[in-house]
Simulated scan of single mutants.
Amino acid sequence: MHTSSSQSTRPAALELTGVSKSYRSESTTVAALRDISLAVPAGTFTAVMGPSGSGKSTLLQSAAGLDSPDAGCVLLGGTEISRMRGKALTRFRRDHVGFVFQSYNLLPQLTVTDNVTLPLLLAGRGTDRAWLAYLLDAVGLDGLGGRKPQELSGGQQQRAAIARALITRPDVVFADEPTGALDSGTARQVLELLRHTVTALNQTVVMVTHDPVAASYADTVVFLADGRIDGSMDGASARDVSDRLAYLGRN
């Protein structure tokens, strides 16, 4: 099994073993993932890269329990989720998985604090006020908890979305092109924040991105081509990633 970090002594927060996924239409079948095996150590930052159609989004969706693989096993925080269905899977995702997307998905009628704590409300759980205050401070929103999303910049809204992803203390935070809607300066701040959650909070982050600069913030970059893992790099620079992308699928 491919391990996505040189820190292989850490327990795995996420494990995929032999995961395959195809999508069928009336006339054709497209193999999105082909026998993917991957282990992501806890407390690490992994970026997943590859060209359009390589399987990046399907990998994230299968790993996060948003889609079910046709074959193989997905363990998240030591729990097999690949055979979970319905309410059990929904509850598990709510408690153990955090999501950050390109669109912030904040509710405009709610304050920052209410948006951040919404996952706890939906789960029927109380809010640890000390943890909330710590998170808002950690993401640079201290003093802004009473504002509505429309009163924030794009970068601040994404910071609120990251705090919301962290509020349940999830096993893994999955980020899907989290800087795609941001200018380069704001994107850098958000990437530094994701990096900080790994370093300071021991959070596990798996990020899908097309941007070599974004990928360079990760401990490990995993490359996909035609639904298969096509190698990885630890501690790669943006130039290293760009050079590697040019040769994807040629091995």
Rank of each mutant, 00 (worst) to 15 (best):
R159Y: 04
E80D: 14
P119H: 07
R125I: 07
C73M: 15
L132A: 12
S62L: 06
T127A: 07
L59T: 03
P149R: 11
T58P: 01
G124P: 02
R91Y: 12
A64K: 06
R147I: 12
F99T: 02
S62F: 04
F101G: 03
Q156N: 09
D114E: 14
Q156M: 04
A133D: 15
A88N: 13
F99S: 01
S103V: 06
L135H: 06
I81W: 10
S103T: 09
G146T: 07
L107K: 09
W131V: 04
P108K: 10
L106I: 02
S62T: 09
A138W: 08
A123F: 13
Q61G: 07
V74C: 03
R93Q: 04
D114P: 09
L106Q: 02
L152I: 07
T113H: 09
G86N: 11
R85M: 10
R125F: 07
D128K: 02
F99Q: 03
G78H: 05
G143R: 08
T79M: 12
G98M: 01
R147S: 13
S82T: 05
V74E: 02
S62E: 07
G98C: 01
A123N: 11
L152H: 09
Q158G: 00
G145E: 12
P119N: 10
A123M: 11
K87T: 14
G145W: 12
I81Y: 08
L60G: 00
T79Y: 11
S62V: 06
D67W: 02
T79V: 15
C73P: 15
L110Q: 11
Y134F: 14
A88W: 07
D70W: 05
T113C: 07
G98F: 00
T111W: 03
P69W: 02
G86V: 08
Q109G: 14
V112G: 00
I81G: 05
K148A: 14
S82V: 04
G86A: 09
V116M: 06
P108L: 09
R91I: 13
Y104E: 05
Q150S: 15
G126W: 03
G65P: 11
G155I: 00
S62C: 13
